[in-house]
Design a binder for these strands. Structure first.
Lengths: 162, 162
DNA sequence: TCCCATGTGTTATGAGATAACATAACTGGG
DNA sequence: CCCAGTTATGTTATCTCATAACACATGGGA
């Protein structure tokens, strides 16, 4: 990543959740787990909380470092397992081009995820992609598509020179 | 990656280049380098050759292991630098979701790359994506997009059950 | 209550990538 | 031709990212 030097970049343009908003989001996750007999256990909930609080995608080892409430780090498998769970339930997404993770911002289970990623401030905005054309092309060439990753890199509105 | 067990998968369905075809592809790269005053040096050429010969995306450490003509591996920076060069000139692409690299199969400099990746046999087919919709949406939300990664995972025609 | 499935704790290690610095090889100007 | 500047390579070490393996805990049903 090459951030900062290349642009004027207002901090706080992409804030994470806190206080009541955070509690609501976590509660929502609890509810969805209850409905599907999945368990939002302590480490899973903690990792989701950290992702929701963050202003930008977090690396796995950021989560590991921030995991303990009194500064003690987690062990890597703890966090990777939680991330695996959160991805499986659609509560979080991995951004391949960053090796980083974000909480899901779209309230629809099973949707296809896509991201606009700012190379300046590092923020990642999730959006719902329209893959009609691509999927048609894939089908035409005989491919059976199961999952799609779309990541667009550039500059967010807050980081543009003009 | 989870390959093999999950499907009948005919080997050799996605062959790499060899013989005259390989020589032509390498010659083509030489030509394009000459036109732009770039140098296709020995390690760069060797890495491109290995990518062109392969049936599927190669990991960096596959390249490192295969680099020497008599079995001696390369040092990691040798291969990573060559890959950086090949990507910069559009001779190769990195597939983020595999941590692997492929030679470019589309003869157009500066095009946008996209891949159909088979989870069974591991082959990756490059295609030219149509991003009109996405880019319009990004522009509408104020984003200035510089690069796009699109990777679709699924089953290639040769690996489908039916 | 015992069993089994699922989740967690812990240690160790595997896989992927780059920093830093020394040396060599091309390039253009004198 | 030779030198200086730039670009590329060689080499060592290390850093980041991720998972294997196995022991222990927990929780819900037969």
């Amino acid at each position: 990543m090459h951030m900062g030097a290349e642009c004027h970049h207002e901090d706080g343009a992409h804030p994470g959740l806190s206080g009541a908003d955070l509690a609501v989001a976590l509660g929502h996750a609890e509810t969805r787990c209850a409905q599907t007999q999945e368990r939002l256990t302590t480490p899973r909930r903690r990792v989701l909380e950290l992702l929701l609080e963050a202003d930008a995608p977090l690396k796995a080892y950021d989560l590991i470092a921030a995991f303990g409430t009194h500064g003690e780090p987690a062990k890597p498998p703890t966090v990777y397992r939680a991330l695996e769970f959160l991805e499986r339930l659609g509560f979080a997404h991995r951004i391949e081009s960053l090796n980083a993770y974000v909480p899901c911002r779209i309230d629809a289970a099973g949707h296809r995820a896509a991201f606009l990623i700012c190379d300046c401030c590092g923020a990642a905005e999730e959006f719902e992609p329209d893959f009609e054309g691509q999927l048609a092309a894939a089908a035409a060439s005989g491919y059976q598509v199961r999952a799609v990753t779309l990541e667009a890199r550039g500059l967010c509105p807050a980081c543009q020179p003009g």
